[in-house]
Design a protein around this nucleic acid. Structure first.
Length: 484
RNA sequence: GCCCCGGUGGUGUAGCCCGGUCAAACAUGCGGGCCUUUCGAGCCCGCGCCCCGGGUUCAAAUCCCGGCCGGGGCACCA
């Protein structure tokens, strides 16, 4: 990672400040992971802060507080401190009052449209220059409940001729009548807006470096007014572009909608780009970290391809994943002329010490092969049943294959360049969920009967791909496809 | 409309600040070969990029100007 500007060993404090209104996803992970990595690199501190100050439009939900923490920990984060904005309302109130007393903020009771009109012309609203006592009185009325939602707002004074009208006298705190906040209920009705809470917290918590999306670049302009008024030093900010992954939906609102419509199984649906979904697919946390670190903090938007993530993950998972035969869409193959034989196949070809799995062939019983290999089964063709023996295909119909034993030796198949297929004799039912863009394919098939798989194992189904075992119930296995 | 950012092979990143050693590096992808009882890995070969136009200069991916394209912001959201 490139060095961080103005960073001193032991003094770097970074933070990640999500709104717990949805699950943590790969897009958020850019800021989160780099914040954390830099904190560690400089022996600093990493803070998780929940920016849950909008009980109305982007309403936080209790479960996401837990999930986000869990997901960060799964990614290997050491979280030094956790703060929750909704616990800190009194702090914001204090600073707001200070600013009012300093004449740097005021309570505006204009109708929003009216204010906007004046603002766009660069004209002060009628409340802006009223005396401090009047402002304080109105501030008390806000807190008391004498103003209703929408009737009053605290504004930070800025340069009224700022070229960007959106910066002018930006709003800092507003009223929400029945917040019914998941953590504080209706205890507070005056809520800070993002820019105010964030500005105060970053200073209060000693944050030195902020990583955030470039959509926040203009917020920095706003927040700097507060810092200037208090004489604080603004943290170093790094703005990065949006990160997305090839064809995967990251948007919280789209995800939520899809879940409500029943299109997605939940926030961890394998098609999604949430961290939970990636985990469920068998993507390892180190792979995600590696990817994010490689992508870095460019200002331009980046779209990474699945291949890239898959390549990193494959490298990590390959040595740990044991091998099994999974036959998708099984077709029976009846073999004549073969004797009983037990194949012994290593669980992992590079690590014989892990032992073998045994698959027993018995004359008179078919072996099952996958319909995916159908094109190899043409009368007159030879194929090798991997680790078993070679057969000649005699007859093929839609739902069965007849074959004749040819030979045992692998060398013969090799010299003739016969193709090799995997197979099972008896198998246990297994379904593999395969995300394909917006579709979730279900591949039903047979997993070799003695496969010793447990939930959360990442294994390789030979010639099929790496999968994570998602569920083992009543002898039935469900796996989720990660990648080839 | 106004205000910010960006633009290097199919994808991602490095190089740009401090011009030459950069017809550009690394990873991934794709094609081919070797090896290998799957796949993958490994080894070898190949494919493919500095958005466009001017300018400065002995020399520009790198500096300047203009254009085009892309992203973001302009909420009593975060």
């Amino acid at each position: 990672m490139p060095p961080l500007p103005k960073a001193e060993k032991g003094k770097v404090v970074t933070r990640f400040a999500p709104n717990p209104d949805g699950a943590f996803h790969l897009g958020n992970a850019r800021a989160a992971i780099l914040s954390h990595e830099y904190a560690r690199l400089y022996d600093g501190k990493f803070i998780l802060r929940f920016d849950d100050t909008d009980p109305k439009v982007k309403r936080p939900e209790p479960i996401f507080y837990e999930w986000i923490k869990e997901d960060l920990e799964w990614l290997g984060f050491k979280i030094d401190e956790i703060h929750i904005a909704s616990d800190r309302l009194e702090i914001y109130y204090n600073y707001a009052e200070k600013l009012i007393k300093m004449g740097k903020a005021y309570v505006c009771t204009c109708k929003p449209e009216k204010f906007r009109e004046l603002r766009d012309k660069g004209i002060a609203c009628p409340h802006r220059d009223e005396p401090v006592e009047v402002q304080l009185e109105r501030w008390r009325k806000m807190l008391n409940g004498e103003y209703k939602e929408g009737e009053a707002v605290v504004r930070i004074k800025t340069d009224l001729s700022h070229p960007n009208p959106a910066v002018r006298d930006w709003p800092a705190l507003r009223i929400i009548d029945n917040p019914n906040h998941p953590r504080t209920g209706n205890k507070y009705r005056v809520w800070p807006l993002y820019n105010f809470a964030s500005a105060i917290d970053d200073h209060e918590l000693g944050v030195t470096h902020i990583f955030r999306g470039q959509e926040h670049a203009e917020n920095e302009t706003r927040q700097r007014y507060v810092y200037d008024y208090f004489g604080w030093e603004y943290p170093v900010t790094v703005h990065h572009g949006r990160l997305s992954i090839e064809g995967v939906i990251l948007s919280k609102s789209k995800t939520r909608k899809g879940i409500e419509e029943g299109k997605y199984l939940g926030w961890d649906d394998p098609r999604l780009g949430t961290i939970r979904a990636l985990r469920r697919r068998g993507i390892r946390p180190e792979a995600i970290r590696e990817l994010i670190i490689e992508v870095g903090l460019k200002r331009s938007d980046t779209t990474v391809s699945w291949d890239n993530l898959a390549a990193i993950n494959r490298r990590i998972v390959e040595p740990i994943a044991n091998r099994y035969f999974f036959v998708a869409d099984p077709v029976p193959m009846y073999i004549e002329g073969a004797k009983e034989f037990t194949a012994e196949i290593p669980l992992h070809p590079d690590y014989p010490e892990r032992g073998v799995r045994k698959l027993k062939f018995e004359p008179g019983k078919p072996v099952y092969v996958s319909r995916d290999d159908m094109e190899l089964f043409k009368p007159g063709n030879f194929v090798r049943l991997k680790d078993l023996f070679n057969v000649e295909i005699l007859e093929v119909s839609e739902d069965s294959i007849k074959a004749r034993f040819h030979s045992v030796d692998y060398e013969i198949a090799r010299e003739n360049r016969w193709r090799m297929v995997h197979w099972v004799t008896e198998g246990k039912p297994c379904e593999v969920l395969v995300p394909e863009g917006d579709e979730l394919l279900v591949r039903n098939g047979l997993l070799e009967a003695d496969a010793d798989v447990k939930v959360d194992d990442i294994v390789q189904f030979e010639r099929f791909g790496f999968v994570r075992i998602d569920e083992v119930k009543d002898g039935k296995v469900r796996a989720i496809f990660a990648h080839k």
